[in-house]
Nucleic acid binder design. Structure first.
Length: 403
DNA sequence: TCTGGGGTCCTAGGACCC
DNA sequence: TCTGGGGTCCTAGGACCC
């Protein structure tokens, strides 16, 4: 049976939400009406554009470029820092409003949802519902969305990407040739900066060109991904709206250092702070990790990872950190100037109390108790309040840059 | 390039076993 | 053994998304 899918996409999410919040705080100007961007902190070398206003876009500013470049394009550009806690709140508000229409909602990202409306229409037309949702979000929450309508997720998502902001678009299979095939191939979901030039070299310029290319040719060149993009170009996507809350498959934390560093002791201090955060989130999810990965980026922007499997799945900060530290040591056998440090845990499993007690030794119990105490203090006094020794030192490293 | 941080999935090659 | 092939697990790297 034909499905009825909506894709809801918040227009310039971080910027819109910041604007709404600022207005609420009594700020007179709406930053959506001036050339403005949400950006990372330049002094922390994280100065890239995360979201832009329509006015900023008119100056040719694009997401992902440096604040420096953006300012060159538009000297009067206003730059604001992200308020990520607030963003989660706005995302939740949107989700709760959408729940009034269906509980089959997939939260694809902080500012995007898929809705499967197939069973919830009651003789109403989907497009009328879409307009109602769009209007209510604007009136009740204060920001605009684009809504894409189709019979599968891919087409609904492509539709919501058409003209912005504050618009509803359909892209039914019958509309593919007129609405999608004329677009440049770079517009297709899952075609990024590496694959697009390769397609262009094959004289594939539009999504229509891709759709008409022999499937086998794409599979030979790009493997599974070749098959996927051929299907997408033809509007084929049978994936379900996955509305059940899924547990994370991995948890990571990484940071660009305020300055490149080579001393392993300093990198270890950063690694400890990152590990504390990762292990804390792991425990909050009630999960255990089997694999630890350390990521480094050198000053010349090359990325390296090393991973290792743990003997027993764990959520202990100390055990994860010890693994991470040994991985770091093998990665830094020769000296490198390090720009970014990251740690992540993968191959997660649910913490099953029975199973854990079987493996529990006195030592792991002690570690668990320590983690629990720190976690509860963090809960009480805020995440950054209580730390192991290493954490304070990070702030010192950060300070170095400022001085 | 003055180039974030959080993810997921795929691939290729090596180790190891039968 | 101057050795075949298949399966599985593991690691490092890369592509893509927001």
């Amino acid at each position: 049976m034909e499905r009825q899918i909506l894709h809801i996409d918040v227009n310039n999410a971080f910027l819109s939400w910041t604007a709404v919040e600022m207005l609420k705080e009594g700020q007179k100007i709406d930053i959506r009406t001036i050339p403005s961007v949400i950006g990372g902190d330049e002094t922390r070398r994280a100065g890239i554009v995360l979201a832009k206003s329509m006015k900023a876009k008119q100056f040719g500013i694009v997401t992902g470029e440096t604040i420096y470049q953006a300012k060159r394009k538009c000297p009067q550009l206003q730059v604001f820092q992200g308020k990520y806690k607030k963003y989660k709140e706005y995302s939740d508000k949107l989700y709760n409003l959408l729940l009034e229409y269906t509980d089959k909602i997939e939260r694809y990202s902080i500012d995007e949802c898929f809705l499967d409306m197939t069973d919830y229409l009651m003789n109403q037309k989907l497009i009328d519902k879409a307009y109602e949702i769009k209007r209510r979000v604007k009136e009740q929450l204060g920001f605009t969305v684009n809504i894409g309508i189709s019979s599968n997720k891919l087409l609904a998502k492509m539709a919501s990407d058409f003209k912005k902001p504050d618009m509803v678009h359909t892209l039914y299979p019958s509309e593919i040739p007129t609405k999608m095939w004329n677009l440049p191939v770079s517009e297709l979901f899952m075609l990024g900066r590496k694959t697009v030039p390769k397609l262009q070299a094959m004289r594939i310029k539009t999504i229509g060109d891709l759709a008409k290319t022999e499937q086998i040719k794409l599979i030979k060149k790009f493997g599974k991904h070749g098959n996927l993009i051929w299907q997408y170009a033809n509007g084929i996507d049978n994936s379900e709206v996955s509305y059940k809350q899924e547990k994370p498959k991995g948890i990571g934390n990484s940071t660009t250092l305020p300055m490149d560093i080579s001393e392993i002791e300093k990198i270890e201090e950063v690694l400890l702070a990152l590990t504390e955060h990762v292990a804390y989130r792991l425990r909050k999810n009630g999960m255990l990790a089997n694999v630890v990965t350390v990521q480094l980026r050198t000053s010349d922007f090359k990325d390296f990872t090393h991973q290792g499997r743990l003997k027993v799945a764990t959520c202990s900060t100390k055990i994860i950190y010890e693994k991470a530290k040994s991985l770091l040591e093998e990665m830094l056998k020769e000296k490198k100037r390090i720009r970014l440090v990251g740690v992540r845990v993968d191959n997660l499993v649910e913490k099953d109390e029975m199973q854990i007690s079987l493996f529990n030794t006195e030592k792991t119990e002690k570690l668990e108790k320590l983690d629990n105490i720190l976690d509860s203090l963090n809960k009480k006094y805020g995440y950054n309040s209580v730390t192991r020794a290493g954490k304070m030192k990070i702030h010192k490293i950060v300070k170095l840059k400022e001085e």
